[in-house]
């Protein structure tokens, strides 16, 4: 077993990132070799994009409250990735890498502009925190993270969960997102009034996913609010694990020598 090559994931940690432990646990459960690295260490090392692509199959930007959201959730983290590390995530994806940004990690991807400059995020709840479970449904086949998923229940916890599109370019942006398969996950119910029910976006390759609810918090069935109706399933996996298993399958495929 020790000879089996396991794909490696870089899970970022650092100021304002909060969910690195459960994100790391989710990837480990799916089979990854997990490396938790502090963003400031990577900056001081001058860790380059090509090193990232050589070392890791997946980059994970966990949820948090990036620097207490002073300038907008995920903003400072986005600036550090763009300007201090100089990483272009689409280049990483084009070399076979996969990226996931969860919660404010998704906000970081939006602030970087991974999904276009016309999309942003703001509060749909009058600035109030919302901690509740929501149903989300995958759309289309583009996103590799969501492959084979049906409607799933996931926890949502943020005050800024409403994805918005520049009012002057709304229609063409929505058409673009839809046509390119980038609108990959939608809320059923949409209590946060997200534009077109957007709960997740992916890039055109399907390798970079930004997701607002938290799959890493539903790795075990006992996290679900209704699990006590079926205690015999207490040891079953949660529905969120499927995303990380998809990434594992995809990463393993990339690691296998071509036959």
């Amino acid at each position: 077993m020790s000879d089996v090559i396991r794909p490696r994931v870089l899970v970022l940690r650092g100021p304002g990132i909060l969910s690195e432990q459960e994100t790391a646990q989710a990837f480990a459960t799916a089979g990854f070799e997990v490396h938790l690295r502090n963003l400031d260490d990577l900056i001081s090392e001058g860790y380059r994009e090509d090193q990232l692509a050589n070392d890791y199959s997946v980059l994970a930007i966990p949820a948090g409250a990036s620097t207490a959201d002073d300038l907008g959730s995920g903003k400072l983290l986005a600036l550090k990735i763009q300007h201090r590390l100089g990483w272009t995530l689409s280049h990483f994806a084009s070399r076979g890498g996969m990226v996931i940004g969860i919660g404010s990690g998704f906000h970081t991807l939006l602030r970087i502009g991974v999904f276009g400059k016309e999309i942003s995020v703001t509060s749909g709840t009058g600035g109030k925190m919302l901690s509740a479970w929501v149903k989300v449904a995958p759309i289309g086949m583009t996103c590799l993270w969501l492959k084979g998923l049906g409607v799933v229940d996931l926890p949502l916890r943020h005050s800024d969960a409403r994805i918005v599109i520049h009012p002057n370019r709304r229609t063409e942006t929505l058409v673009k997102l839809s046509r390119r398969g980038m609108h990959c996950l939608k809320y059923e119910g949409n209590s946060v009034e997200s534009e077109a029910g957007i709960a997740g976006l992916c890039d055109t390759t399907g390798r970079i996913l930004g997701i607002m609810p938290h799959p890493e918090s539903f790795i075990r069935w006992t996290a679900h609010p209704e699990w006590t109706t079926a205690p015999q399933r207490a040891n079953a996996p949660g529905q969120g694990l499927a995303l990380f298993e998809n990434a594992y399958q995809e990463s393993m495929r990339a690691l296998q020598p071509e036959t």
Binding site: L18, S19, Q21, E22, Q25, A26, A63, K128, M129, L130, S131, A132, W133, V134, K135, D153, P155, R157, E188, G189, S191, H214, E216, S217, F218, I219, T222, A223, P225, E226, W227, T228
Partner: peptide, 26 residues
Amino acid sequence: RQLDHEVQGASALKPLHTVTVSPELS
């Protein structure tokens, strides 16, 4: 609902028992 009881992904018994996921229907 305004306090985060899900972070760390470990909660197995929440302050509320909820039926029908999705806040506006639950």
